[in-house]
Design a binder for these strands. Structure first.
Length: 444
DNA sequence: TCTGGGGTCCTAGGACCC
DNA sequence: TCTGGGGTCCTAGGACCC
């Protein structure tokens, strides 16, 4: 918590629906619902006109149709949302270098890094009024709600107090008085499960939460969460505004209109998702080591299965192969409602090249898997090939490189030419037919 | 006509290593 | 001769956010 109110939170009002109304004048002043329009869709955003009928986000679209049959139900145009978001984020970055987007329609701005005469309440208020006008201009007529406070926590709560088109500045010193009467659910991180745990110990409001010792909170909701609640109940929040956060995972998932049972169909769907995920990986110039398969069964129970490769990959066939084998571990006979494929343990291969010193293939056998023992274990798995660290190889699309490690039916290759910058590390299926040795293994 | 899609963070147990 | 302790990695699941 700072001594002055210098953290700003902007939240564009009913963002997806507002973009639709902006682009289609006939929708203005009418209820608009953006979200899944299929049989199993849910609402992403409802315009304020639709909210008047009790429609809100996360509600099944079917229920929204019941409550507001005359609304326009739209699947959404993410390209338009992304573009509008980019314009607004660009404006924010022109105001302060410290901008932290939370999603397409929300961001924190650190006003300490902005150009303001001082940080009095009057001064930041005037600044925010001007900002709201400029948001309106660059977004083509959208409104945003702004909150300003001495921490991220307070700024976010403030922006919620006067929606839509609101502006609330919480003066320093007033934070705890503001919070005390509020429900604990205003605290970010307190969802239905935590709220229920707290209710069981008689806590409904922040004032009541304040009375609970840290040890007790840790006992009830766990170490990390308990400690956080203890601090936030006292408006203690020192989290900085962080402009760049690196991606930790990339995933694709689909819910089907009807449950799928056919195993061959499920495999084909997983293959396609592997293709989509790796395409996004390559666009982001990333590769990853851990492949996760997500399966939601007919009864809505959800399970995940994951496997970690010896090295990072962005290869569609490798991810597909791993995901398919994970699918084989799941009993899908009752029907599958959702499938998903994700990749985590991400590596940026340019950084990887800068920070590793294994340019010489002779050094490469430092890796845990890069030894003769794993190579021979692999040989028994894949009888056709023996991949030995240091062996020169050639790949149809990735060019020439050398084997860096191998194991579990996967060979990790460090490529040095072709379509990829030098030093790129990729894991490929050991039986990948487009991967060929161009020099004999040094040993058998 | 129950319950999206893309993420993040946390916990807990087991393997493995020193 | 009945039993260490810490650290890290991996896996699975769950809560939560927009």
């Amino acid at each position: 918590m700072r001594a002055e109110s210098t953290i700003l939170h902007v939240d564009l009002d009913a963002f997806f629906a507002a973009v639709e109304q902006r682009d289609k004048p006939s929708l203005r002043g009418k209820p608009v619902v953006v979200g899944g329009v299929g049989g199993r869709g849910v609402v992403a955003t409802a315009s304020y006109e639709a909210r008047a009928f009790g429609v809100h986000s996360a509600m099944p679209t079917a229920e929204a149709r019941r409550r507001c049959p005359n609304a326009a139900f739209l699947a959404g145009r993410f390209h338009a949302y992304r573009e509008t978001s980019r314009a607004v984020m660009g404006l924010l970055r022109s105001i302060s270098p410290l901008v932290e987007p939370l999603s397409l329609d929300e961001a924190f701005v650190d006003l300490e890094a902005a150009n303001l005469p001082d940080h009095s309440v009057a001064s930041v208020s005037a600044f925010a009024r001007d900002l709201k006008e400029r948001v309106h201009e660059v977004s083509g007529g959208l409104t945003g709600s702004v909150g300003i406070g001495s921490s991220k926590f307070i700024a976010k709560i403030a922006s919620d107090l006067d929606k839509p088109d609101g502006l609330v500045v919480v003066a320093p010193g007033n934070e705890r008085d503001l919070l005390r009467p509020m429900q604990v659910t205003v605290i970010p991180g307190v969802g239905p499960a935590t709220a229920e745990s707290l209710r069981r110990i008689g806590v409904h409001t922040v004032a009541e939460l304040e009375e609970i010792s840290e040890d007790e909170l840790v006992r009830v909701v766990g170490r990390s969460h308990g400690r956080n609640l203890y601090l936030l109940a006292r408006a203690e929040d020192d989290r900085p505004v962080v402009p760049e956060r690196e991606t930790k995972s990339i995933s694709v998932e689909d819910t089907y209109d009807t449950d799928h049972v056919d195993a061959r169909l499920l495999q084909a769907l997983v293959d396609r998702q592997a293709g989509k995920v790796t395409e996004r990986l390559r666009k982001a110039r990333l590769s990853g080591r851990t492949v996760t398969l997500k399966v939601r069964l007919h009864d809505f129970s959800t399970l995940t299965r994951s496997a970690t490769l010896p090295g990072p990959t962005d290869d569609a066939r490798t991810v597909a192969r791993v995901a398919r084998s994970l699918l084989g571990d799941v009993d899908t006979s009752g029907g599958v409602r959702l499938l998903g494929v994700g990749v985590s343990g991400l590596a940026d291969w340019i950084q990887d090249d800068l920070f590793t010193d294994t340019e010489d293939p002779d050094d490469a056998d430092e890796g845990a898997w890069a030894d003769d023992e794993t190579a021979s274990a692999l040989a028994s798995l894949s009888r056709r090939r023996l991949w030995v660290p240091g062996m020169d190889v050639e790949h149809d699309s990735h060019g020439r490189g050398w084997v860096w490690g191998s194991g579990r039916g996967v060979v990790t290759v460090r490529f040095e030419t072709a379509d990829t910058p030098p030093g790129r590390v990729l894991s490929l299926a050991a039986d990948d037919p487009s991967l060929r040795p161009v020099s004999p293994p040094r040993e058998e």
